[in-house]
Design a protein around this nucleic acid. Structure first.
Lengths: 137, 137
DNA sequence: TCAAAATGTTAGACTAATATAACTTTTTAA
DNA sequence: TTAAAAAGTTATATTAGTCTAACATTTTGA
């Protein structure tokens, strides 16, 4: 096993990684039932996804045990979370979108925004922040 | 037939509607092979999608004939195209993203952006445009 | 401490979106 | 004007992601 070298992930698989990272952050550990509760899917679906992710070398999952991320899986999860954070900040602080809507939108768009657009968005937010700071003084 | 009242569309089905609208705009008519060429799928895939869309009352497709949109299908296509245009304008004119990247990103995000965020984005672009216009004078 | 409850896993089925291959219909051009 | 080419359709298969139901393992508490 552990031989699928293709690291291209679907939106669904990215969501599993992101959720596992979040659970580890909040609870120290991630369990199948917590993942299924968080993503509103059944345990069986989680199991199948974990097998796929383990095969890609992104999670570690011993039978009946906790779920963990490999360094590579953690890196991908952090990357997606970062995209979500940037989008959320832009939507709420610059556009003035309601938090709930902003989060929903960020959670969808984090899977499709390109590195280039993300970088430009980060730069833009920084510029606006600096302008606001100047005005305050 | 024509009985599936569920109008919730997948990203794939939205892309078919959008492509049909574009072909009609550019060539007056839309044919199966033009759709398949544009979306880089096979004719058989187009046929299946057209059956689903026809069943939802969004396209008209007589066997071996041209493909057309119903008023409702056209409305949805216009709506998606509008989202794409807004996102593209924001990415290129405000963030300074390369056109090719901006188009790719807009074509993915047009399926997920909420009405609220879209409205706020349109308002924001308008505000920036007005500021630019003032400066020029 | 051990039976019940909770949790996790596996097998089998379904849906959506695609493909290939075989077939049908329409169009074209010699 | 008809045979070949192009376009369109249908049948069947595959992949990804989900589900339910049956089964296995682990945890809990009387």
């Amino acid at each position: 096993m552990e031989n699928n070298t293709d690291k291209k992930l679907t939106e669904s698989l990215e969501n599993y990684l992101e959720t596992i990272a979040m659970l580890k952050r909040e609870n120290k550990i991630a369990r199948v039932k917590d993942i299924s509760k968080e993503l509103d899917v059944k345990n069986s679906s989680v199991n199948i996804a974990l097998n796929v992710l383990a095969d890609k070398g992104l999670v570690i999952h011993e039978k009946y045990g906790y779920v963990d991320l490999t360094d590579e899986g953690q890196k991908i999860a952090d990357d997606i979370q970062h995209k979500e954070d940037v989008l959320f900040k832009f939507f709420t602080e610059i556009l003035g979108v309601e938090k709930e809507t902003a989060l929903k939108d960020a959670c969808r768009m984090e899977h499709t925004i390109s590195d280039e657009t993300l970088a430009k968005l980060i730069f833009y937010i920084g510029k606006i922040d600096r302008e606001k700071f100047k005005k305050k003084k």
